[in-house]
């Protein structure tokens, strides 16, 4: 755990209308005492997300308009690059990810010398993945395996540890999508000679609010992601 604290790690929490969850997530990260620095990227929230985060004493950057999950993460990467951090941990602000596993990601990165470590869900009865998400995960996992030769059980996971080389690359221009960083990013990173591995972490159902994977959105999500993957594969850098 000390090794984890010694490294220059920035936790990036992209948040959109998460006033009910963000405070708890920040508290939980502090309780586990695994990282020192937290950045909340408020992606144009219309609620009190920014105020709640500011009152918790963490760094807050607010977008004037809603850019999307990927846009918020890229702002975090740019911030980390500017402030000289060596690693970025991305966590969802809805309380799904357990911050005590940050060190597991860090250890996995040290052992494998990977550039990106993805936290995949520990299969137990505490977490029930939605039907649409299960189907999406299966499809993207299969495509990712075909391209990279590696099996990723949970390419949709937003719990990731990214080293400087990788987040520097992702912070440039349109290297990171505004809305859907997912299996397409694993394929993009693999294509550009970055190593991506995954390690098990515990995840929970979101505490409150509406998930981006609810309603009709999953169907559109799968179609757009397939298009995005095709473009990543076909594009010449």
């Amino acid at each position: 755990m000390q090794r984890c604290l010694d490294a220059r790690i920035l936790v990036v929490l992209p948040a959109y209308n998460e006033e009910n969850n963000i405070g708890g997530v920040i508290d939980k990260i502090r309780t586990h005492n695994v990282v020192n620095d937290i950045l909340v990227v408020d992606d144009g929230s219309t609620d009190e997300t920014e105020l709640v985060a500011t009152n918790k004493g963490v760094e807050v950057i607010k977008h004037t308009i809603n850019l999307g999950y990927g846009g918020a993460l890229q702002t975090g990467f740019r911030f980390a690059l500017e402030k000289g951090y060596d690693y970025v941990v991305t966590l969802d602000s809805d309380g799904q990810h357990d911050p005590q596993y940050i060190c597991n990601l860090f250890d996995a990165m040290q052992e494998t010398t990977a550039n990106v470590v993805i936290g995949c869900r520990i299969i137990d009865q505490n977490y029930r993945m939605g039907f649409a998400r299960r189907i999406g995960s299966f499809i993207f996992s299969f495509i990712t395996m075909l391209y990279t030769g590696k099996r990723f059980t949970d390419p949709t996971s937003g719990f990731q540890l990214i080293d400087k080389k990788a987040f520097k690359y992702l912070s440039k221009g349109d290297n990171y999508p505004l809305d859907y960083p997912d299996a397409n990013i694993i394929i993009l990173l693999h294509k550009n000679s970055f190593t991506v591995v995954e390690t098990p972490v515990r995840m929970y159902e979101r505490r409150s609010g509406k998930s981006m994977h609810s309603g009709l959105k999953p169907v559109i999500y799968v179609l757009r992601m397939l298009l995005s993957i095709a473009m990543v594969i076909l594009r010449r850098d």
Binding site: V41, E59, I61, H63, T64, I65, G71, E82, D174, L178
Partner: peptide, 17 residues
């Protein structure tokens, strides 16, 4: 325009910070 808007939004957010 969307790409430019993203750049502007991020830059404004940094400056505000």
């Amino acid at each position: 325009l969307k790409s430019r808007l993203k750049e502007l939004t991020q830059k404004t957010a940094f400056l505000e910070h």
